[in-house]
Computed example of a mutant assay.
Amino acid sequence: MNPDVKAFFHKPTFTVSYVVSDPGSRKALIIDSVLDYANNSGRTSTTAADEIIDFIRAENLEVEWILETHVHADHLTAAPYLQEKLGGVIGIGGVVTSIQSTFKKVYNFGDDVPEDGSQFQRLFKDGETINVGGMTLEILETPGHTPACVSYKIGDAVFVGDTLFMPDYGTARCDFPGGDARTLYRSISKILAFPPETRLFMCHDYGPNNRDFAWETTVTEQRATNIHIHDGIGEEEFVKMRTERDATLSMPVLIIPSIQVNMQAGHMPKAEGNGVSYLKVPLNAL
């Protein structure tokens, strides 16, 4: 049986979140949610997350899992808010501890910010499976963009996070700490070895050349037309392209707030004596 998939596109961050459900049992999971965040004011809101909540309630779905494909650098996760409203277990790939270790130093966090992944309720290993109603979801470690990236396969669908974009946009950058173009090539090769008709769901789309935003493709389409890694592109050619391209890219607009929140499963820093939470901005560190 294949899952029902409902996509939610967040244009301010070009992020796609998913509600994935078992048609038989109405059990569901959420992948890569977004908390609205205004960088100019530091204000958060739940508009995008509330759209997901409204859909789940309208469809009478029961959320069992709230999953992240990686520690995102371009948006804040709404996982704790969604869990509060809908229930479910927050999970991520177990290598998230390496991200926590790296960025704990960047932000100079103290002992109150553990680097053992305990902010998440479930840490996944490569090849591990979980149940979603009568369906089975498999965790695939797909590092390269970050060392802790995972993809999720359920039925004929794979949610690839930031490994791949739509074919006319290519592949993810690899210049964040612990990223590696060679590793990304091998991760993508693993995804593109699935059957040709396998549905692939992107975490982002930027609508290049003014085309409509899109986020679903197939193994066949990626292998035939992806501008960075179609059939015939070898590992060395890809690594050269990706390394040269990454050297021209600026940091994501929301990387400073996003990493420090997302590495802690979306939990905000503890409020200080005045009742206000504060994010840290490391100067000249990234």
Rank of each mutant, 00 (worst) to 15 (best):
D4L: 10
V5S: 08
F8A: 04
F14G: 09
Y18P: 00
S21I: 03
K27C: 13
K27R: 15
I30E: 08
I31M: 08
I31G: 08
T46S: 09
A49P: 10
I53P: 00
I56Q: 01
W65V: 09
T69W: 03
Y81P: 07
L82T: 11
K85W: 01
G88N: 06
G91V: 04
I92K: 05
G93K: 09
G94V: 06
K104Y: 06
K104G: 15
K105R: 14
D112T: 12
S118C: 10
K125T: 14
D126H: 15
I130F: 11
G134T: 13
L140R: 05
L140C: 07
P147Y: 04
C149V: 13
I154P: 01
G155S: 03
F159R: 00
L164I: 13
D168H: 13
A172I: 02
F176M: 11
L184F: 07
I191E: 01
F194D: 10
F201P: 00
H204I: 00
R211Y: 05
T217E: 07
T217H: 04
T218E: 01
V219D: 05
I229H: 09
G234M: 07
G234D: 15
E235P: 05
E236M: 12
F238G: 02
R245V: 11
V253E: 14
I256D: 11
M263R: 02
K270W: 03
A271G: 05
G273T: 01
N274D: 07
L283Y: 12
N284Y: 06
